[in-house]
Design a protein around this nucleic acid. Structure first.
Lengths: 350, 350
DNA sequence: TATTAGCACTCATCATCAACGAGTGCTAAT
DNA sequence: ATTAGCACTCGTTGATGATGAGTGCTAATA
């Protein structure tokens, strides 16, 4: 479709624009070492590239900048894998995060997000593990006072979730202990998303005769799952949200506000980094309007999935302007996701 | 020090500027219903007020704006308490947060911060309760796998704190149970900040003979308190951080960035809203450079403390431009902190 | 003596205008 | 097929002047 020369020109334009954020003109291209043609020749090619939709002109007397289509082509065809090499400093940065010193998943994710945003100077987004991959390890109920309990769930990933419960009649310590024992016996190893149905089922079987305990249990269950989405939604970790302020294209308060408020809406952020096709692994790049979120139409998102036992369970993403250093970002994400996979399998294989 | 007329003029200027964010001139003042003087008279007074440092002139041909000193005088002497009345809608907004439906302290604080920022259109900052007012209610240890444990602390405020621990030898379920029972027996009711010393003491007394358990306990204790500050630092809740983007005085990317990055540094934020004199309760207003934090030198912070059993345990603050609606903010904060005191005493008196 | 009308002066804002130059598209020469 | 040459476009920059809000001062007024 594109001639070799056109590819080369497009590539140089994108690289140039990514670095300097300024439209690049034929003269500058002609000077570039890889290109041995006069400005006039290049102008012709550029006109063709524009006609085909790969380039845009901010105004007549400016150079060209890549269009979304241009970036897309660049990412799909013009980045050679051997070019995408992560630097050694970055590698050691990540390795500090994934020490074998056990820290729980959530903390690790938070640290990874922080390092990622610092390295890239963009905003990093990490979507926590799908909750239905996690199983209940332990459940505990602690009475606070007459009418208030705290229920605590511990999962096999070391995540601790708790929930306050108010009941009219607190019940005796003995009763509570009995209930806790029962819950642990019956529910350990059950995936969180099945917890409620499994629990209801067990209650019905076990406590049919004992009305007192039955009511108690139903009450607790009810409160425990009052906000059921808590056990389904996976947590988001954002870092470096103010980094876009460093980008020259975001110098206008209105667009800044648009993006910063976008970051505050978890749903939109998740929408942004959710893999477009389910089950597809590997790096994905969404450029400009390919993002279904309005406010991000001048931004790009690069995502990678991470896995547990071969199944993708979460996503790591980098959010930045469409004029993003795709080469570098892809290599960093590629490395990080693989490193992260190792980390997970090392820790949670049991 | 100031004549009545000067006070009146200063007051009208501040009110005016707070509302419109534009320097106010003698002509506009003269038109104001409360003032029956000609522009010329007012000009003379304004010149005096400027000389005394209460007003500033952005440039020769502009009106005057209040200086920090002017705001200070306004806040200290020109706001009549009967004027500071909170609206009914705002009251019901808060009451929704403080339902008797038990939710734990942290969640309540988070919600309160959210409502506060929405009502005020400024940034709200809430500093969680001093940790040394909270006592241990329950401690639990859950083994995840051979080498990893999760320790869970529940406090009397319903706060659940957990910590992952890696040990070389996991120990038997029996041992763990024994340890847990021991810990609960000995540590329940102990203030968190005393936890470590108390624990060490008990370990020495109890396990001198049993070397196996002694090592185990010391190991756990060590990990539990590895980051001791976790039990000392009180948590911060920020909400509405992007609200400053609505203020016309923050239209420049550089200052925006300065403030947004300030919000990311907990230490600075705490510094910002910590009461200047310890033990002093009630509303406090810090204007402009009275804030010791550099980036906030064009901002004001209004804070109120909240109490538990008569002792101040935390702070609620509103962060905005020096051109802030002090009257309204003070009344809102006053109401909220009192409401919050009631809420706390209702819940945690036991 | 306190107030005010009058007036010259200051200065930010805005629109206009021309010079500049980076970059283009097209044509004709190579 | 490539390129030199050239007219043209258009954003940027800086100068200029008009406008007008607001001031400070002086002299008149109550």
């Amino acid at each position: 479709m594109l001639t070799e020369r056109q590819k080369m020109i497009l590539k140089v334009i994108v690289n140039n624009y990514i670095q300097l954020a300024e439209p690049v003109g034929s003269r500058a291209l002609s000077k570039h070492s890889d290109i041995g043609y006069s400005p006039a020749t290049i102008r012709n090619e550029m006109a063709d590239l524009e006609e085909m939709g790969f380039l845009e002109q901010p105004h007549t007397s400016a150079g060209r900048i890549p269009s979304h289509k241009g970036y897309r082509y660049y990412v799909d065809y013009l980045i050679s894998p051997e070019e995408t090499q992560i630097s050694k400093e970055n590698i050691t940065d990540f390795q500090k995060v994934f020490t074998d010193q056990f820290i729980e998943m959530e903390q690790t994710l938070e640290q990874a997000a922080s390092v990622l945003s610092k390295i890239t100077n963009y905003t990093s987004i990490i979507l926590g593990p799908e909750i239905y991959q996690t199983k209940l390890r332990h459940i505990q109920i602690v009475p606070l006072n007459e009418h208030n309990l705290v229920a605590i769930l511990v999962t096999n990933t070391g995540k601790v979730q708790h929930k306050s419960i108010t009941i009219s009649d607190g019940g005796s310590a003995y009763e509570i202990e009995k209930i806790v024992n029962f819950l642990n016996e019956k529910l350990t190893g059950i995936p969180l998303y099945q917890l409620k149905s499994k629990l209801m089922q067990e209650i019905n079987q076990e406590f049919q005769r004992n009305e007192q305990l039955y009511g108690q249990m139903m009450n607790i269950t009810h409160h425990l799952f009052r906000d059921e989405h808590e056990y389904k939604e996976n947590k988001l970790f954002l870092s470096g949200t103010t980094n876009i302020l460093n980008q020259p294209e975001f110098s206008d308060v209105h667009t800044i506000k648009e993006i910063l408020t976008l970051f505050e809406k978890s749903d939109d952020v998740i929408q942004l980094i959710k893999p477009s096709e389910n089950g597809k692994t590997g790096i994905e790049v969404k450029i400009g309007t390919e993002n279904t979120v309005e406010a991000a139409s001048n931004c790009s998102v690069i995502t990678a999935t991470y896995e547990m036992e071969g199944n993708p369970i979460g996503t790591i993403g980098i959010f930045g302007p469409t004029r993003m250093d795709y080469k570098k970002m892809i290599s960093i994400l590629d490395f990080l996701s693989k490193d992260f996979n190792n980390f997970i399998s090392r820790l949670y294989k049991g």
